[in-house]
Design a binder for these strands. Sequence first.
DNA 1: AATGAATGAGTCTTCATTCAT
DNA 2: AATGAATGAAGACTCATTCAT
Lengths: 202, 202, 202, 202
Amino acid sequence: MQRQLTQRGQERKAQLVSFAIKAFAQNGYHTTSVADIVDGVGVGKGVFYWYFSSKEELFIEILRTSQRDMRRRQQREIRGVEDPLDRIDLGIRAAVLWFAENDDLRRLLEFARNESTFASAVHHGQKVLVEDARTHIEEGIKEGRIPPRDPEALALAMLAVANQLTQVYISERNEDPEVVADTVAEFCRGGLGMSPEFRQRP
Amino acid sequence: MQRQLTQRGQERKAQLVSFAIKAFAQNGYHTTSVADIVDGVGVGKGVFYWYFSSKEELFIEILRTSQRDMRRRQQREIRGVEDPLDRIDLGIRAAVLWFAENDDLRRLLEFARNESTFASAVHHGQKVLVEDARTHIEEGIKEGRIPPRDPEALALAMLAVANQLTQVYISERNEDPEVVADTVAEFCRGGLGMSPEFRQRP
Amino acid sequence: MQRQLTQRGQERKAQLVSFAIKAFAQNGYHTTSVADIVDGVGVGKGVFYWYFSSKEELFIEILRTSQRDMRRRQQREIRGVEDPLDRIDLGIRAAVLWFAENDDLRRLLEFARNESTFASAVHHGQKVLVEDARTHIEEGIKEGRIPPRDPEALALAMLAVANQLTQVYISERNEDPEVVADTVAEFCRGGLGMSPEFRQRP
Amino acid sequence: MQRQLTQRGQERKAQLVSFAIKAFAQNGYHTTSVADIVDGVGVGKGVFYWYFSSKEELFIEILRTSQRDMRRRQQREIRGVEDPLDRIDLGIRAAVLWFAENDDLRRLLEFARNESTFASAVHHGQKVLVEDARTHIEEGIKEGRIPPRDPEALALAMLAVANQLTQVYISERNEDPEVVADTVAEFCRGGLGMSPEFRQRP
DNA sequence: AATGAATGAGTCTTCATTCAT
DNA sequence: AATGAATGAAGACTCATTCAT
């Protein structure tokens, strides 16, 4: 749904999106009705359909925006860093921190991955992330600092670790994101096969 | 719902469970109606409510059984193995292979983890699994063959990697489970911090 | 929707159909809601969807049944009559009388013809009716008792006249169906080009 | 709704009407929303309600205008023709040709006749048309050139034939309007009971 | 144990109309 | 005259669950 929105319109839409994120994350996509959302925002039911053509569309928009945002975060952190191993490290930490700050979105992405209706919508974004990581890994391999293995598998594994540990330690147990980021990064470095001595460029 | 079931009754119930698993895995829990299930099995609606008090109960039963089954598999593989590092290795491989053989159930468990209604049902089983792994890890640490770190975090990370790589490489791309198990195990060994020289008992 | 119906089920369905016909005829298809129908019959909303998969399906079923019934009526009246001109005459009268007795259905058929969603559903039945008439007309032409003209056009014209005059004189003004049938038949005979002298077989 | 309209206002209104006619004819009255219309014309919703107080009013205005236009056409064709039988003939042909040129409007009139909300709006106009025809028919009867029968019924029958054959042969099958007009006229002459010898004034 | 039938609250969505600007 | 935004009643349809038989 493409619509020219006024200032006020944009605010309304943002309001709806933000409330929907919270509601979906807390109660689940299927369990949250459009009525819940509009009631929560305090507007009539029609308003929802003025801004979104369906509940599904809203959700997909949320997914897309999230993924874009997360990637932006990663790229911002990495920009200008030359060492591919440092880039991997920073990328992992960025992911953990983004997950920590956007726990609702992490939940939604996780849900969407497992829901056939939305899997494809998430897939693309995830692929992009994995491609990013793969580039750095390949560079590391070429430099002889990472033992040669399937870079995609490694990238996927790292993403999974970041996601899982964030969920348990940050989302559920409220531990310090920086510490969790350390743990994740360390596990991943090991998983990639960088022994400590590899870490410095030859 | 506890009921004394005749032979035939048990078969009926198994029929329902097995169809439900397929349906839930393929179309999602919310999208699969009780009507779909009984129609699929070719029985009346009353039958369903004779064996299960609700759709939710059925799903939880599926989750429980699955987790129990997976654990059994892991324990069978490990039984009698003395070396904790070998137990970890075998446990990881068992997980990957169980996931591979029970892709529908893996999906359902994954879904349930992200659904507030079912999260708690999965939690317990996952905790047990993690406790198992934790024991071996702690032993490994005590023996000085794994650098000391939070064993639970390590266990969780391993589970995540197993799950993720199984999904992508086996469920989606149909690769050889044994090969995937190797990849997962290798990543995890590295993540745990066992350098190659650690692998043999001192 | 195919379903094995019990005695009771068949009665329920008939009840719904019969009420729906009245409601649609009186208030229009679009203006009559499923809620109106189930309320009118005094059952829950789900009942409707137990018997019909949609409001549209119900309507189409009504159309089909009507057309079949009307045709049956025509054929019953004509059976065994040898003279094609007599068959035409009897066919026209049967149509008028059926319309008279099933005014609600006549209305619905008329409505459906003009509604793109249903036009095709009516089309087929109308074609059959026209084909029937065309056969008799062609025979009449071959016998030299009807001047040669496009038989289909003639059939269509007769149907239109029957419909229109029934509507105005019977449905709106409650005149005697037999008299109206006479009028229609006479107009049509003339329209076909049977001058009085043609009427007897040579 | 009476409003003093500027030049531009009149154009806007005409634009709306003309788009609405197409939309209603193509998709049906109920299926075409006010939003469809204003979007189609490319204006805001307020505009619609500036010119029409409701969707219904717009439709009724369309019906009225159409009927007036059709009658004008008939009268123009007939003007100055003395022979009542010729007037009938010309009237029929005018109807067919108007229908042919204004297929959208024919559809809408046909729809409206069968919709209780609009039936009354069409009724009046149809009555006028029938009255016109009735006059000529009565004259024909008085002159002894048409056998004496209910002139109104005859008029209605003729209208029905014109409508029906136009729909099938022109609207659906794109045949030559002049040819169809011939067919209709011939059928009606026969229906009225003018044998060929009647056609000339005594 | 089992079936077909029924319930009715709840879901998403549409749309004529109105309002503030 | 005109717009974008908002309203909210109403619509079609779903579905977990229960009931009569």
